[in-house]
Structure formats: structure tokens, C-alpha cells
């Protein structure tokens, strides 16, 4: 394979990996706990900006930068996203599913507007430039490949940690809450506390995803946390891959991002006038794909397995995952 194609493949995998992180975070909230978070972009942005402020070089335009090492930035991104999720969760998690969705959309918008307007903190609309990318001191090719391996490593660690957590008693408790909240409460489970835990855990992972993304593009601005990319696309990935299944979340991210990105290789060779029109067809295609999946395979490509038998929950005749309302 020639170097150009290899580098594109590397970039494709890195992006798919970063979106896998976001989808895994959403899976903790929606897939396992049934929390409808429509504000992924908010946690994404908090993580991205936290790490950006901490790791960039000092500038008079805004707070910092503090020139700290990247791993510290990523850690701080997780902590900040978690703290904000805690504050939001304390208020919003009392809301039932659809109201929680409205609440989280609103909060994501508030976060976006604060980051956009508080110029002393974030350099406002101009965004933060010059984020260090790990392994940047190597040649561009080596640095790209090393970053991709790092992303794969992070996805693997999160995947393993989540699988352990989900198969532990904590995971069973979460599923019990998701399926029958009243029954779980009657069993003596502290429903509010557990939901808050899941919300924070998901947000921490999303914050990390945001930081990874910002360091990959070496830039973060208000447009980068556009809900179209940072919220909607992640939902498509999780629903398509199979909510309630971590492997499904990763598969969904890989499939959707690959379709999203590679389709352009065909459209970009068209004459300019047609290429402009074809750009909309790509967006349309993703929407259409979601419609097909929702109608023909609502459980996603990889449905949630029944933890006892290892079979799909659907095969066992139970309610589809993440649909607590239906009998």
C-alpha cells in the first residue's frame, strides 16, 4: 500500500477510535442506564477546552496556557467533564427520560455559548490553536501511526474496563433500574445515586473523547463542538451498532465514520458543481441509514446479549434494550 493511502487509513482509524470513545460513553448512559443524554457536545467541548487550556503554551489572549504534559491535560479533561456532569446530574436526573433529553440539550447549548462568549477563558470565537499532539516530535508519518495506536489503546482500555463493570453486580443493578425503575427501588436500590454514577462515568469518557479529538486536530473552536458532529453522529453510531453492547458501540462508530468519510473519496472527484451537491447526499445517506436500521433492525447490528445465556435479548423475547416504556 502506498504511503498516502496508508496515512489516510491511519487517520480514518484514529477518527473512528475517537468516536468509539464517545459512543462508549453514551452507551454507559443510554445503553446500560437508559439516560437520554442529548448533550454529548457539551461534555465533548468541556473536555476539549480543559485539555487545550492546560497543555498549550502561555498566551496573553486568554487564561493560560499552562504548557502541561498532554496526559495531564487528558486527565483534567475527564475530571472537569465528570464534575460538570455531577452538577448537572444532581439537577436534571430527577427528570424522566424525555425531559432529561430536553434538559441536556439546553445545558449543552449553555456550555457552548459560555465557551464561545467568555473570551478571557477560551479565546472566544477564534478558538484555541496550537494544541500539542502526542508524538509530534517524530516524523509526520510515525507521529500519525503512533497517535492511532494510542487511540486504539485508549479504546481497548475503556472497553475492557466497561465490560468488567457491566458484568459486575453494578452492571446488573443498572440494567434492573433501566428495565423497571420502580421494581429496582422496591428492591432497596438507591436509584438516584446509581443513575448519577452512570451519568458521571459516561460524561468522563465523553470528556476524554473531546480532549483526544482536540489534540488530534490541534485546534478547538466553538464550531468544533457542533451538535451535528458531536451529538447527532454519535447517537447514530450507537443506535446503529447496538446500544447496550460495547462492541456494538465501537462497531457503530467504525461503520458510520467509514461511510461518512470514504463516500467523499467518490464525490470529491466529481466536477466542482456536482461535488457541491453531492456533499448533501452524504449527510442524507447517514440519515437514511439510521431510518433503515431503526425500522429493520431496531436493536442495532450487535444487539445487547442476554448476560445469562449469551444470546440476544430479543431472541429471548424480552423488550428491546433501552426501551423501558414498552411492555
Amino acid at each position: 500500500m502506498d504511503t498516502g493511502l496508508l496515512l489516510y487509513f491511519v487517520s480514518l482509524v484514529a477518527y473512528a477510535g475517537i468516536f468509539s470513545v464517545l459512543a462508549l460513553g453514551l452507551n454507559v448512559q443510554w445503553g446500560f442506564t437508559g439516560l437520554f443524554n442529548a448533550g454529548i457536545a457539551g461534555f465533548f467541548a468541556v473536555g476539549a477546552y480543559t485539555s487545550a487550556i492546560l497543555t498549550t503554551d502561555p498566551t496573553p489572549a486568554r487564561v493560560g496556557g499552562f504548557g502541561l504534559p498532554v496526559p495531564l491535560g487528558w486527565l483534567a479533561a475527564m475530571v472537569t467533564a465528570g464534575l460538570i456532569a455531577w452538577a448537572i446530574g444532581r439537577i436534571c436526573l430527577k427528570l424522566r427520560s424525555d425531559y432529561l433529553a430536553i434538559g441536556t440539550i439546553g445545558i449543552a447549548e449553555i456550555i457552548r455559548l459560555v465557551l464561545k462568549n467568555e473570551g478571557w477563558l477560551t479565546n472566544g470565537t477564534r478558538g484555541i490553536n496550537g494544541l500539542p499532539r502526542p508524538f509530534d516530535s517524530f516524523s509526520p508519518e510515525v507521529s500519525q501511526i503512533a497517535f492511532m495506536l494510542l487511540v486504539i489503546g485508549v479504546v481497548a482500555v475503556i472497553y475492557i474496563a466497561l465490560e468488567l463493570q457491566i458484568n459486575a453486580p453494578w452492571g446488573r443493578m443498572m440494567r434492573a433500574i433501566r428495565e423497571r425503575e420502580v421494581a429496582a427501588a422496591a428492591m432497596g436500590k438507591d436509584v438516584a445515586k446509581r443513575r448519577l454514577e452512570a451519568f458521571i462515568l459516561g460524561a468522563v469518557i465523553m470528556g476524554l473523547g473531546g480532549a483526544m479529538q482536540a489534540h488530534y486536530t490541534k485546534f478547538i473552536g466553538p464550531e468544533s463542538s457542533d451538535p451535528m458532529i458531536a451529538t447527532f453522529l454519535v447517537w447514530v453510531m450507537l443506535i446503529l451498532g447496538g446500544s447496550g453492547n460495547n462492541r456494538g458501540a465501537i462497531l457503530g462508530a467504525v461503520v458510520v465514520w467509514t461511510i461518512w468519510s470514504t463516500t467523499e473519496i467518490f464525490t470529491q472527484r466529481l466536477p466542482t458543481e456536482l461535488a457541491v451537491k453531492a456533499a448533501y447526499i452524504r449527510v442524507f445517506l447517514i440519515g437514511l441509514l439510521l431510518q433503515f436500521v431503526l425500522i429493520l433492525r431496531p436493536e442495532g447490528i450487535l444487539p445487547e446479549p442476554d448476560r445469562k445465556t449469551g444470546k440476544s435479548v430479543l431472541a429471548a423475547g424480552a423488550a428491546p434494550p433501552g426501551d423501558p416504556g414498552k411492555p
Binding site: T3, G4, L5, L7, Y8, S11, Y15, G127, Q213, Y216, T217, F219, I220, G221, E223, S224, D226, I229, S261, E264, I265, T267, Q268, L270, T272, A275, V276, A279, R282
Partner: peptide, 21 residues
């Protein structure tokens, strides 16, 4: 012709394709 969508992620992805592919 690539679509940069006025957004960092999309611009980097589209630029990668133009430059490398």
C-alpha cells in the same frame, strides 16, 4: 473538491483525503 463543513473535524478529514489519497 472536499467538504470542510466550516468545522475542524470535517476539514481535517477532508484535507487528509485530498493530501494523502
Amino acid at each position: 473538491t472536499g467538504d470542510s463543513q466550516c468545522n475542524a473535524q470535517a476539514a481535517v478529514d477532508a484535507a487528509t483525503k485530498l493530501v494523502n489519497v
